[in-house]
Design a protein around this nucleic acid. Structure first.
Lengths: 335, 335
DNA sequence: TTGTACGCGTTATCAG
DNA sequence: CTGATAACGCGTACAA
């Protein structure tokens, strides 16, 4: 930049003000033009790191997800990316590949980068030690001047977008009950996974209230993934129990479950109905069309980003996002 | 950091060397321990921006994609993320939302950030002006010390991972021909989209060589998206032509096409067969299972990253990645 | 092995 | 409105 100043015949200060503006200083038009022309000629590119240091704040935002290849997270990432761009922030993306110990590590990384804000997506686990480590890492980040928003369970004392997992699956349960289903099974995901747990609990409790409690033997645990769904469904079918409707705690698992049914020669929905959760866009065209609970994931990403970027508040804020039941062919009405 | 030095009773230089190592300087063990303890006590966190400035290089890598919510790109992003993490680099993700004018903008952003390297994913368009702008932006970035790798067509004078689109779809054409199909239609995507064009061309040329040329009227143009596939298939079906097999130039379009067929009361594959390209993981469980050309997208992301990070070469390097035909139920053998 | 002092590129303060 | 100069936090020649 000193070269630019020299080329334009002005001081560094003036060049700086001409190029990157300044609070209430202004530059005479002819000088500004000269500087800009010189910058263009020299292909000058301001150094964001130096600006960050001088200004004391960066223009970047961090996003931490479990797995960016998972459509759930990539949808949220799309929302975050969009909102970040609108706020003129670059997005640093960290994907933990489901390794929870990496989460606080990434928070530390973003702390070193002096990111403006961090958005953490992905449900918490029931692991007090891990949560505590994460809480501390986030607190250190905030102490260093950054702000934070979470998508998931409001456990870490920060602003959180809370998806109504329990009430969404309760709504789904009632809708399915309304279609005449009585004997349910649940592909419940991992015991320690709080999102999975909330969805399972909401579903089961609603059914219990309706007088059709889920047989505990028909609550199958497995991974929160497509393969987990496949495996759990296989287990269920192998047991040979007579089930009318299977609820998988997310769409990806539901898809795995449908695949398992097909491979076992069991027809969906004729022999067994299947429902999921999330309404993943990429999966809207599967056959049979999947009944599910729609969660506006892109909006969730946007909201989380806006929450993180909003002026600090003393009390952690909570934003609740409801899901809406979408019934499709995978759970036809029983006649 | 000066506080840490003071707390430990050493100079700034010693503190720096103790904390972040140094080329061939070493620090006495007891001093190092004192410094590290002081750093811990004061919750010291090195400022990556300041380090970047002092060292003259950052620890971050940029990735530019068209749409992070698209499984094609999120798979590549997963690979890039993984390779970047292995190289101890943070990943800055930019999603253009299909706005080509944003691409060079993001390159400029990453230039300002002084990113080590940039990976650009997403096929080029036939738009000389846009390509030229992008080429210039990338050259400026390289002149500023960064390296670049592209996924797509080798048009921008930089290292490129080239996906064998033409030969992959030619292989697919031959395989489908071998299964007895003769009357084909192609959902060809946008005319200016080079990836779409290569796939269409490879497919059509192979068929022509086999003596079953595709009727030009049955090459339908539409967007490179699910909705584009739906629309093109609807058009095709409305025309009422008798087609045995439809090739959509990507899986997402193929899924749209299958949906359109279903909505039109046309059965897949009984009435018409459908094939795609990419073998998107999330779509492996759709019904009927989709015949396609498998592209190892995660690996492509890894390779592009490694290419970008490899020592500079004068000549742009090209890495070719082949796809492999996967025939499934959507294109059964004709008896 | 340790400490001193300068430079990295920019903004902000303060004096002209 | 403009210019000189001191920060910002760190790495590293150079000197001790």
């Amino acid at each position: 930049m000193s070269q630019v100043a020299q080329e334009a015949g002005v001081s560094l200060a003036t060049a700086s003000r001409a190029i990157n503006g300044s609070a209430n200083r202004t530059v005479r038009d002819d000088l500004r033009e000269r500087v800009l022309a010189a910058a263009e000629r020299l292909r000058y590119s301001p150094d964001a790191n130096a600006q960050a240091m001088a200004r004391g704040r960066t223009m970047s935002l961090g996003l931490i997800v479990h797995d960016i290849a998972d459509p759930y997270f990539s949808s949220i990432a799309a929302g975050v990316s969009q909102a970040a761009a609108r706020a003129d922030l670059a997005m640093t993306l960290a994907s933990t590949q489901h390794d929870a110990t990496l989460e606080p590590r990434f928070v530390e990384l973003l702390t070193r980068q002096r990111a403006r804000a961090i958005v953490v997506a992905g449900g918490r686990l029931q692991d007090d030690e891990a949560n505590e480590r994460m809480r501390r890492a986030l607190q250190d980040f905030r102490r260093s001047g950054g702000s934070v928003a979470l998508v998931g369970q409001p456990l870490l004392d920060v602003d959180t977008v809370v998806i109504a997992n329990a009430s969404g699956s309760a709504d789904l349960a009632r809708a399915l009950h309304g279609r005449g289903y009585r004997r349910f099974a649940v592909l419940a995901g991992p015991e320690v996974h709080l999102t999975a747990r909330d969805r399972n609990a909401g579903f089961s409790e609603a059914l219990a209230q309706l007088g059709s409690p889920v047989d505990p033997d028909l609550v199958i645990r497995s991974a929160f993934t497509r393969d987990g769904g496949y495996e759990a469904m296989s287990t269920l079918l192998a047991a040979g129990t007579d089930v009318e409707c299977v609820f998988a705690v997310n769409d990806v698992m539901a898809v795995g479950a449908i695949a398992a049914a097909r491979d076992a020669g069991v027809r969906v929905p004729d022999d067994v109905a299947v429902a999921g959760f999330d309404d993943i866009v990429t999966l809207r065209d599967i056959t049979p069309a999947l009944s599910t609970v729609r969660v506006p994931l892109v909006d969730v990403g946007v909201m989380a980003t806006e929450l993180a970027l909003a002026p600090e508040s003393v009390e952690p804020r909570l934003v609740h996002v409801d899901g809406s039941v979408v019934l499709r062919e995978s759970t036809p009405g029983r006649t």
